[in-house]
Amino acid sequence: MQQVITFPELVTIMEQHPISIASRDDVLGGVYAAQGWEGRYRELMRLGRDLPALPEELYEYSCPVKGCESEVRLLLGITPEGGFWCWAHSEARIISGLIALLLGQVNGLSAAQVCGLHLEAEMEELGLMRHLSPSRGNGLKAIINAIQSHACCLSQQA
């Protein structure tokens, strides 16, 4: 069962994720600018290659995401200031690239802000909806659901 990490030692690591709201334009700009599916998928593969895997101390608390053809590990955390942070990674690069796109939309926002996002809209804009279809066992949808249900739950508690 997914839990949301609040231990200060761990959330300080989580806050270091290279992909966040603050860095998104730098890191993700290439995907948005890419032309044609080839360009876009090359950028996704590159993003996926660069997406950091969960370091050991985080991996220990992470969960496998169900419904993934490739294993995806997921960990959510919240800082004392209320910053929402997500770490996720897959061995498959395109999935990791798509994860990077998600992280660029949520990391560093408050739980309430994440709860209000429409994460699928961005995928749609980039022509990546096929990755959310129910026939794909890749679990991207499961990741979005996990992020948003926890964010919404946390924002109600706050």
Binding site: W37, Y41, M45, E69, S70, A92, R93, I94, I95, R130
Partner: peptide, 11 residues
């Protein structure tokens, strides 16, 4: 990764 190949073939 096989899944990446599968996606690139599907595309």
């Amino acid at each position: 990764h096989p899944q990446d190949i599968g996606t690139l073939m599907d595309m």
